[in-house]
Design a protein around this nucleic acid. Structure first.
Lengths: 344, 344
DNA sequence: CGAATACATGAATTCGTTTTCTGAACAAAA
DNA sequence: TTTTGTTCAGAAAACGAATTCATGTATTCG
């Protein structure tokens, strides 16, 4: 009644064991080194190795995971991997993961609440060993609840520091915008400043605007209502807003734009309208995407170094995975840097 | 001897069953709809549902995978997710995967042979349900061997069409380069053309150069040795090569560049050197990355629509996953499009 | 020489599901 | 009343590894 190659499923440890003339646990022990304290004779070790090679055996990660309760997988949720801000994060996370011999499951939330929740559900069901997320809609409470249920470390990149049970890399863009606006005022001598923001429903929107307003208020400068505008995130959006400004006249002498894509759109639109940047209007972006060095004039912008953020996120995560009883919660500020180029 | 909440592990089906006063398989049947032909009474169905809700039960995907031999996961290997050509592919694959309720494991090969092999090993060990790869070094033979062992569909994006057991999306960049060179010659009247290539060790290198050479030969045009140059993939590399050309003098009137990043670098360098593009030198790139619309003059380039490729790859893969006995192998050509902008 | 100690291995259990395979209860047909 | 179906649900066996427990040999010690 010997089952001869039932189907042609991949070989299992039993197959290896049978060929080597040993028992299945012995094979397991040989393959996992002697992490268990049981010694193995060189003789069997050799026989097993030969059988493994002969059959081309590969351990089944699913079975192993079921038994060990570890998947050697981390999950990463970001808004959109094809966005210049996010893919360096993904890349960095993958690089760190490779060092730890982990695989990375990546999911795009597209700023959609349901997708963010869905991601957490997946994290729970699949038993990944850790998760990195860039949540927009998930509340602190929800996140915390998921992290507690999952019994695994969560690390977030975000605008809140008050997640009770997880490390966070804190995006302090309010401060960055504040200080950069100050710089435009005190170092560059601008006093009629404008601002193009992103939709207020997303955290970066109000935060960056707040930084701008605070700097203006502290300098006792008034902001003309015409000079506070809102775009979407796109280059086209930036163009449209800028064209509308030109149409209406009454331009500011400096313009803070809440992301580079719109800033570049604005530059292109202003130049097409015959204005000189930065002489007629100075422009500062936010993000320092690669395109910023390509547009002419090159874009002065606030750089956040997403690759470094990704590294921070991943390192924090793996530290916790390796050492699950780290108790104190960590908050990493994200250093920003004003990259001074030609546009301001 | 009732185990009361042993640790606080997440609840299992047994826990749900106990609470609902039914057996564990019954819970399974309720949760999986009646895909099995066993009917369930509304009464038990309700009891189970309540128990599930009360415990916040979530099925354990690992255990399910072990039993069903499916992981609801596909793996994607590309060279570098933070490269403008690749991330739209990743994005497209993820989008299609979401429709099928699959997760995506993404890995960067960085054009490194060991990483490509490692990826295939991972695919085998983790029992993913399908794999999409953009191999550079893996030979047809190796790939085919892996696919056979894995018993799952492989789909590749690449320069060969001769993979016996898998669908392939074929990058016919030789033809694209050939036809575009023809266009420069016949439509634009250039006869002194140059070429900046990528390292020949990678498949696109020789293929694209071959297309260029073929078009030149067929037009009976000679290529001056000074006009065939090689860069790396980077913007800086493009700059350097262009600067060297300027230094040496004897410029061609049109320049085919094997990727956009280098083409953009070349444009920037030529303009910095006081040359007019396209009047003094016309430039055509390859890839149509977003930056191509931002540089001035905007870049004429060969567009390959990576997002669409990603969709093709993913759709082909999922068709096979859903229908494992598709026998005929499919080859999809990738349509290319010459995006005529200002630089040529 | 008997007992204690390594040393090396196999048997049995477990991880949490899905999927047979059985069987009980009850209704409808003979 | 007996037979034949239906309708439901539990018992048991996978899936492929890791791990605990038990056991059988050599080896060493008193």
């Amino acid at each position: 009644m010997s089952k001869i190659q039932q189907r042609n499923r991949p070989p299992t440890m039993h197959d290896v064991a049978r060929l080597a003339g040993v028992s299945q646990p012995t094979v397991s022990r040989v393959l996992n080194g002697n992490n268990t304290q049981v010694p193995i004779s060189d003789d069997t070790r050799l026989k097993v190795q030969q059988a493994v090679d002969a059959l081309g055996y590969r351990p089944n990660a699913v079975a192993r995971s079921l038994r060990t309760q570890r998947t050697q997988t981390v999950a990463l949720m970001l808004a959109d991997i094809s966005n210049s801000f996010y893919h360096p994060i993904a890349r960095a996370v993958q690089d760190v993961a490779r060092q730890y011999d982990y695989e990375v499951l990546i999911s795009n939330s597209d700023h959609i609440y349901e997708y963010e929740k869905h991601f957490c559900e997946i994290v729970l069901r699949r038993g990944v060993d850790g998760a990195i997320l860039v949540p927009i809609h998930l509340t602190t409470k929800e996140l915390d609840a998921y992290a507690l249920q999952a019994h695994i470390p969560f690390v977030v990149l975000g605008h809140h520091v008050d997640h009770p049970n997880m490390d966070v890399v804190f995006l302090d863009d309010e401060r960055a915008t504040y200080e950069t606006t100050q710089w435009l005022i005190t170092e560059r001598g601008h006093y009629r400043l404008g601002y193009i923001g992103v939709p207020a429903v997303l955290p970066p929107g109000p935060r960056r605007l707040r930084g701008f307003n605070r700097a203006m208020a502290e300098a006792n400068l008034e902001v003309h209502p015409d000079h506070i505008l809102q775009g979407d995130f796109t280059l086209e959006g930036g163009k449209r807003v800028a064209q509308a400004m030109v149409q209406r006249g009454n331009l500011p002498t400096a313009l803070m734009v809440a992301n580079d894509l719109m800033a570049i759109g604005a530059i292109l639109a202003f130049r097409d309208a015959g204005l000189r940047v930065p002489e007629d209007i100075a422009i500062v972006g936010f993000d320092n995407i690669p395109e910023a060095t390509i547009v002419r004039p090159t874009l002065t912008t606030i750089a956040q170094n997403p690759h470094e953020m990704g590294e921070r996120l991943a390192c924090a995560l793996f530290e916790r995975i390796e050492n699950p009883d780290i108790t104190e919660r960590r908050v990493f500020g994200t250093p920003y840097e004003l990259i001074k180029r030609e546009s301001a």
